[in-house]
Amino acid sequence: MATKKVSRSVVIAAPAEKIFDVLASPHRHPEFDGSGTVKGQIRGPERLELGAEFGMDMRLGVGYRITNRVVEFAPDRLITWRHFGPHRWRWELEPLPDGTTRVTETFDYSASRVAFAYQLAGLPSRNARSIEQTLPRLKHLVEDAA
């Protein structure tokens, strides 16, 4: 049985607080997006919190605008957002004993009533590839700033 979630992890040589600062700043999202869909014109607060909304210009074949809302938030440990659809993008940060942090990004489409359509459209594998490109970008962004 499929979990209807796609997750990948990376270990970053930085404390969770530093990584979370980047994730919680919607204006920085284009810097680490590996999907190539997040474009400029970020709208919203400088720092996200539970219930905060932020929007951005996107491009997936054609340009469009999307608004996201933060639906889970634990400072320096967890941030999750979603837009009008039920799927979520979740970031979990796990501090490790050596001072590094394991960062896990998850595309969760388990709440979708049309999960089969996601699968037919190839979204899980496309999102896996995007995560596999995003995490190294985030790693370099944070580690290079140190």
Rank of each mutant, 00 (worst) to 15 (best):
G51P: 10
R43A: 15
R47G: 00
R88V: 04
P15I: 04
E105V: 04
L48P: 04
W91E: 00
F20Q: 09
P30H: 07
G122Y: 11
A16Q: 06
S25I: 12
G122L: 08
A128H: 03
G61T: 04
H140Y: 11
D144Q: 08
L141G: 11
E31R: 14
E143P: 03
K18W: 02
A2T: 04
A16H: 06
V38A: 13
T104G: 07
M56W: 12
S125E: 15
H29M: 11
H140N: 12
R126L: 12
A2E: 09
F107C: 10
I19W: 09
D33S: 07
P95Q: 06
L78S: 00
H87E: 14
L96W: 06
K18C: 01
A52Q: 07
S25N: 15
L50H: 07
G36M: 08
A2G: 00
T106Q: 09
H29L: 12
K18A: 15
E17I: 03
V38P: 00
L23E: 02
A145V: 09
T3Q: 10
L23M: 06
R129Q: 13
A16K: 11
K39Y: 02
V38K: 13
P30G: 08
A24Q: 10
A24P: 01
P95L: 05
M58F: 09
M56F: 03
P95C: 06
H27G: 11
V38Y: 12
S9C: 04
P75M: 06
M1F: 06
R113D: 04
L50I: 03
G61E: 05
L23S: 03
W81L: 07
M56T: 08
D21A: 15
E72M: 12
F116M: 05
R126F: 04
H27F: 11
F54V: 09
G99S: 08
W89E: 08
V114G: 00
P75R: 14
E132Q: 11
A2D: 11
H27C: 08
D76L: 10
L138A: 10
A128K: 08
G61P: 05
A145P: 11
E46S: 06
L48M: 13
P26F: 02
T67N: 12
V38C: 04
P45N: 05
G34A: 13
P136I: 02
I19R: 02
